[in-house]
Design a protein around this nucleic acid. Sequence first.
DNA 1: CTATATGCAAAAATTTTGCCTGGTA
DNA 2: TACCAGGCAAAATTTTTGCATATAG
Lengths: 142, 142
Amino acid sequence: MTAQRELILKIFLDSEDEHMSAEEVYRKVLNRRLRISKATVYRTVDLLSDVGLLRRIVFRDGVIRYELVSKDEHHHHHIICTECGRVEEFPFDLLDDLEKLIEKSTGYKITDHQLKFYGLCSECAKKKSNEATDEATKKATK
Amino acid sequence: MTAQRELILKIFLDSEDEHMSAEEVYRKVLNRRLRISKATVYRTVDLLSDVGLLRRIVFRDGVIRYELVSKDEHHHHHIICTECGRVEEFPFDLLDDLEKLIEKSTGYKITDHQLKFYGLCSECAKKKSNEATDEATKKATK
DNA sequence: CTATATGCAAAAATTTTGCCTGGTA
DNA sequence: TACCAGGCAAAATTTTTGCATATAG
């Protein structure tokens, strides 16, 4: 356990519900006016994931992000706004039955599952529908 | 519609249930002794995804892969072996109710969802349990 | 004291871009 | 013909690696 590893964990603890890429973690380190080399950040988040303190999550952009794994954590999933990129979590799981079904039908021994919903958050949905209305008005007036 | 785009679509049609990264598509082009520049492959899979002929899927390694979208397709999901990387599909969805629940509780307008199971395929599971047994035998004999 | 982690810089891998040329409609 | 797509190579981005030095245990 080194100062660098502690600091990186601390960054995750301090920004509880964020999902950060290695790059973003590195930026946060700089923001705190501390110096850890980029290589160490990459190595460390990888290591922390391997030992189970972080979890790798990947959205459609292909960027590997990391989130804190809390001990008492309920299985949770993510909903991502395709417009602004905001990520929220929701605590329902309900997939245990499905998981068992899949195990039976495929012969896999399932260890994990990840569910992601994509869509528009309420703000972006509103914005979009306003734009659509504006367009229509413009056309009608033209 | 150009020869390059057709060829790339053809590659997806010929390898129906594969999930290929741009890089892999490019390699398949070379295997057919044809020449499309790498840039075109990247641009094309991206474009084909935007127009809805391909779908972007991302597993935990963060590599963006693409799969063919068939017109009559039932929503399907993926199960990935964490040992050998094999990917299989399964045709159950069953998430419509959950989706509605999420829409209500978050205010999002959901447009898509992706569910992935991770685990060991039956082969890798067998291999692992054999290894474990071997280890135990070794220890006992020692 | 030994093994392991870090920093740095270079290398590798991956993806995007600019610009000119060629083909499509 | 006008415009859009493709090829190529360079650039940008992201991630990994080698090696010397520093640090933890």
